[in-house]
Write a protein that binds this DNA or RNA. Sequence first.
DNA 1: ATCATTGTTCAAAAATTATTGAACTACGCC
DNA 2: GGCGTAGTTCAATAATTTTTGAACAATGAT
Lengths: 176, 176
Amino acid sequence: MALAASETVVHPPASAPPLTGLTPLEAEAVDLFVGLAQVVGLPKSIGQIYGLLYISATPLSLDDIADRLDISKGSASQGLKFLRTTGAVRLCDEHGSRCDHYEAETGLRALATGFLKEQIEPHLESGEDRLARLKRLAANAPAAERTHVVQRVKQLESWHRRAAGLLPLLIRFLGK
Amino acid sequence: MALAASETVVHPPASAPPLTGLTPLEAEAVDLFVGLAQVVGLPKSIGQIYGLLYISATPLSLDDIADRLDISKGSASQGLKFLRTTGAVRLCDEHGSRCDHYEAETGLRALATGFLKEQIEPHLESGEDRLARLKRLAANAPAAERTHVVQRVKQLESWHRRAAGLLPLLIRFLGK
DNA sequence: ATCATTGTTCAAAAATTATTGAACTACGCC
DNA sequence: GGCGTAGTTCAATAATTTTTGAACAATGAT
C-alpha cells in the first residue's frame, strides 16, 4: 500500500498465451468446471485443473498448471493425482520435454465411469453390510414396531437394488 | 453440581422407546442416512433427521427429534426446513397435539425429484448462460486455437443436452 | 394480559475440509 | 559424487461449512 504518487499500472502484453494468469476464455472455462466440481462435491482446485486442461489446446505440465491457476504445487499434485486415478486426465507421451504433461480425457462415458466407480460404488458396497445389520436389528425389534421397521428395511433393500441397477444404465446412457 | 455422597446413577428403563438417545436399530438407520447424506453433499444433521423419521413408527415433533438426536433446536429447525422444501418430509395432521409432527416421505421417486429439482436443476439452468458466454469467447479466440476451443465448447453443449435429458429419465427409472 | 410452549433466525463458535509450503525422494545431467 | 529439476507427502494453516444457543416472533392457554 501507500503507492508513490506517480506510480502507474503496468498493463500485461495485449496478446499471446500468458505464462501466468488466464485468458478470459480460460477463466470462463475454469469457472464452469469449478461450479461442476462443487455440484459433485469435489474441491475447487480439482475443478480448476480439469477446466484448464479441458480448454487448453496443448498438454500442460504440473508447473504450468500451478502457475497459471496460481495454486500451490502441492494442490496441483494432489488434484492431478485424483484426476489421474479417476481417469479424467491422461499423461500424454511428451516427445521433447523432460517433465510430464497432461491432457483432459473428454469422453463423457469415461468421465462418468471413473467418477461413479470411485465415488459411488464404494458406498453401494458398504451399504450391503449396513443393510444386513439393519435387517437383523429390525427382526428383533419390539413386536409393536416390528412390522413397520421390517417393512422399511425391505424398502431400503429395494432402493439399494435400484441404485445398483442404475449405475450401468447411467453409463450406457452417457456412453460413447 | 455437588451431588450428595449417597447419590446413585439412575439407569434408564431397560425397554420401551427412550425419550432420549436412540435404540440400536434407530442408531443404525440414522448412520445409514448420514452416510447417504455425505454422498450427496448434505450436512450430517439432515441425514440424521431423515434417518430417524424414516425408521420411526410414529410421527415426531421438532423437539422429539432434537432431543433424541442430541442436536440443537436450531439445527433441527433448519434441517426440517430443508427436508420440507425438498419434499423429503411431510407435516402430518396431528389430531391431539399442539405442535407439528413430521413423517418421512418414502417414495423414491418423490425423494429423487425433490433432490434433483432443488440441487441439480438450478445448475443446469445457470449452465446455459455460461455456455453462451463461453461460445462467444471461443469464437473470438486467436486463430491458432480457435478450431480447438470451438470444438470443446460444442462438446460441452452436447454434455449439457445429455445431462438435461438425463433428469427426466432418471426420475422415470426411479418412479413409483 | 401474562405466561408457557413452539418454532425461527442469525451471529458466533466449532467442526470439517481444502490449501499451502517446506521437507523429502527420485531421477537425469555434468 | 554433486547439483538442478520434477514431483510427492504431510503437518500446519486457512477457508469453508455446519452447528449452536440466545434473542425473538407467534400462538394458545389460563
